[in-house]
Nucleic acid binder design. Structure first.
Lengths: 330, 330
DNA sequence: TTGTATGCGTTATCAT
DNA sequence: ATGATAACGCATACAA
C-alpha cells in the first residue's frame, strides 16, 4: 500500500508538497500539483486514515448504534440517517448492540478513539453516567431514546401524545375495555414510560380503569403477538380493543385472532405502532401510529453538521410529532 | 484521552512494560502488572486503535456492505453475521451502498486502509476488476452475490434450483399459465440470471411456453406488486399463477388482487421469495422460498476466522440450498 | 513556493 | 524482567 512518501519520491517532490495537494491548500505551483496528482493515480494512493486521525485530523464519519437492525423502525431510521449524511459528505457506519451493554460500550470506544466523530444512539443500554463519560471524546446524540435535562442533544418524538391520541381514537370508537401491550414494562420509569403515561392519561380522561390483566409487557415480535392473542382468547372477560407498541405485535395478534374466528375490528379493534410496510398488506389494514422517521434522521444529521462546523455546541432538544393513520383495524 | 505514556508515568514504569501488560506478553512481574492495571483503570485508559493499526497490528473487525438495509433479507443477513462474528470476538461494521458505485468504492477504501480486516459484500455495484484490485489489502468475501471462478471466496445459495422447485410446485398444482416477476432483468446474464434459468428450465421440462407479456422485471416493493396486479387484472388472457422474486412484491400482488375480488389461490396462485415475517401474517399465508440466512452468515464468519488464523487462503465456494415453504397461497 | 523536522500513540527490536 | 528507541503515515510549525 503506497504511502505519502512513495508519492513524494515518485513525483520528485517532498512529502509536504504532496500533503498540500491532498488537502488542497494554496501555495503550490500548478505544474507540481499536476505531477503529484499524476503520481497519486499512478500508485493508486489513498491517505491512511489511521495516520490522519493520529495527527488529530478530524474525519467525517458518523456512527449509529441500533439495538436490532432487523427491526424495521431502526432499519428505516438508519436508512434516513445514511441518506441525509451522504448529502453532507459524511460516511455512516452502523453498529448493532443487540441490546447488550458490553457491545454498546465497545462501540462508544470508537468515539473515544476517534474512529467516528459523532455517535447517534437510538437506544440506551448502559446507565447514562457511563455513556456521559464518553461525551468528552466526541458528539453524542440521542435519537428516539431520550433523557431530559442530561445535557445531551436529542431528537425524539412525543410518544406520550402519540399513545394518547391512539388510545383516544379507540375510546371515540366506543371502546371501554381497552388492553395495552408494550415492548417495555408498565412502570413510571424506564423504557416506554411515556407511552404508558399517554395510555393512562387517555384512560383517566375517559373515566376508564386500567385492567392489569389486560396489560402485556415486553412483547416484540409477531410470535409474541400470537401468544398475546391466545391469552386473550382464553379470558372470561375479554377486552374489545387493544393498543400495541409495534405493528409486528399487532399483526401477530390480528392473525391469530382471525384464525380463531374473531372479526376485526368488530370483535377486537387493534392499533399498531410505527406504520411499517406490513401495516398496509395485512387484512384488514392496520390502524397505526406513524413515526416521522425521515425527519428524525435528517434532524440528527443537521445537528451533527452544524455542531461540527463549530457553530456552537448548545444542547438541542428536538421534539417531533407522530401521526395517527386510521385504516381498517379499528 | 489518556495515552500509554500517561499510564506509564502514573505507574512509574516504562511504556514498554505497559504495552506488555496490555498485550499480556509474559516476562512481567506480577506486582508491576498490578500497578499497570491499576493505573489503566485510574486513568480510564484504552489503547488507540489508529496507533495500533499504524504499527501494522491487525484488529478484528469485519465490514459488511449491503445495498439497502431496509430490505429484510439484508437486515436479517447482517444480523446473522453480526451474531456469528460476536461469538468469535469480531466487531462488525455495516455499510449501506444504496446501490451506488461510488459509495461501494469508498467502503472498500476502508479495507485498503485497514479500518476493517475483511469485507463481506452482499451485492456488487462496480465491475469485478475494480473490486478485485482491493483484494491485496484484505479479505473480500462474496455473500449472496457471486461470480464463479474469479478467485474470490463465496457463500451463495442455489438460486436456480430454488426457482426451479418453486415453479415446479406451481406446475404440479396444475398450473400451465405461469407469470414470472423478478427484481432484476429477464436476461441470461446479470442480476437474477440464475433465477431466470431456473424458471425457464422448469417451464421447458413441463413443455410450457414463456409468455413475454407475463414477465415483469425490476419489481421490488409492495407498491410495485400492486402495480403488477393492476396490469394483470386488465389482461384479456390472464395467468393463473405467478412466481415472484420477493415476498414484498408477492404481498403487494396478493393484497391488490384480493381487493379486486380475486380468490387466492383459486383465481391466482402466488409464490414469494425469502420467507420474510410478512409471509406468515398475510392472509392467505404466503408460499415462499426460504433462504438459509443464518447459515449464510455463520459460514461467512467461519471462512473469515479460519483464513485470518492463517489456515491457508484457499478460495472457498460454498453453495447452500433454499427450501420451499408451502403455505396457503398456492 | 517548497522543504525539514517533529510528534501523534503504539509496538518490536535491541539493549541492559 | 525492564527500558530506551525507532518506526508506522501523516500534517504542521518553522525555515529557507
Amino acid at each position: 500500500m503506497a504511502t505519502i512518501s512513495d508519492v513524494a519520491k515518485h513525483a520528485g517532490l517532498s512529502k509536504t508538497t504532496v500533503s498540500r495537494v491532498i488537502n488542497n491548500s494554496p501555495h503550490v505551483a500548478p505544474e507540481k500539483r499536476e505531477k503529484v496528482l499524476h503520481a497519486m493515480k499512478e500508485l493508486n494512493y489513498s491517505p491512511n486514515p489511521s495516520a490522519r486521525r493520529m495527527r488529530g485530523n478530524i474525519m467525517t464519519s458518523i456512527g449509529v448504534i441500533v439495538p436490532r437492525i432487523v427491526n424495521p423502525f431502526f432499519s428505516y431510521l438508519v436508512d434516513s440517517i445514511e441518506k441525509a449524511a451522504y448529502e453532507h459528505g459524511y460516511q455512516v457506519v452502523i453498529f448493532q448492540s443487540d441490546e447488550r451493554r458490553e457491545k454498546e460500550l465497545s462501540f462508544l470506544e470508537m468515539l473515544k478513539t476517534k474512529q467516528v466523530d459523532a455517535m447517534i444512539m437510538t437506544a440506551i443500554e448502559n446507565d447514562w453516567e457511563v455513556i456521559e463519560s464518553y461525551k468528552q471524546y466526541g458528539l453524542i446524540l440521542l435519537c428516539n431514546e431520550y433523557l431530559l435535562n442530561k445535557g445531551v442533544s436529542t431528537v425524539r418524538v412525543d410518544q406520550m401524545n402519540a399513545t394518547f391520541i391512539g388510545v383516544k381514537h379507540l375510546i371515540e370508537k366506543g371502546h371501554r375495555k381497552i388492553a395495552y401491550c408494550t415492548g417495555g414494562l408498565f412502570a413510571d420509569d424506564g423504557k416506554d414510560k411515556d407511552r404508558n403515561k399517554g395510555f393512562q392519561k387517555a384512560m383517566k380522561e375517559a373515566g376508564l380503569d386500567v385492567n392489569p390483566q389486560w396489560v402485556f409487557v415486553e412483547r416484540h415480535s409477531i410470535e409474541d403477538g400470537k401468544k398475546v392473542a391466545d391469552q386473550i382468547i382464553k379470558m372470561e372477560d375479554k377486552p374489545t380493543a387493544i393498543f400495541t407498541g409495534s405493528d409486528e405485535v399487532a399483526g401477530g395478534i390480528l392473525v391469530e385472532l382471525k384464525s380463531n374466528g374473531f372479526k376485526i375490528p368488530n370483535d377486537m379493534a387493534i392499533i399498531g405502532f410505527d406504520d411499517q410496510p406490513l401495516a398496509e398488506i395485512i387484512d384488514p389494514k392496520l390502524t397505526t401510529i406513524r413515526q416521522p422517521i425521515s425527519k428524525m434522521g435528517e434532524k440528527c444529521v443537521e445537528i451533527i453538521v452544524s455542531q461540527n462546523q463549530g457553530k456552537g455546541s448548545e444542547i438541542i432538544d428536538c421534539e417531533l410529532q407522530n401521526e395517527l393513520v386510521i385504516r381498517e383495524s379499528t
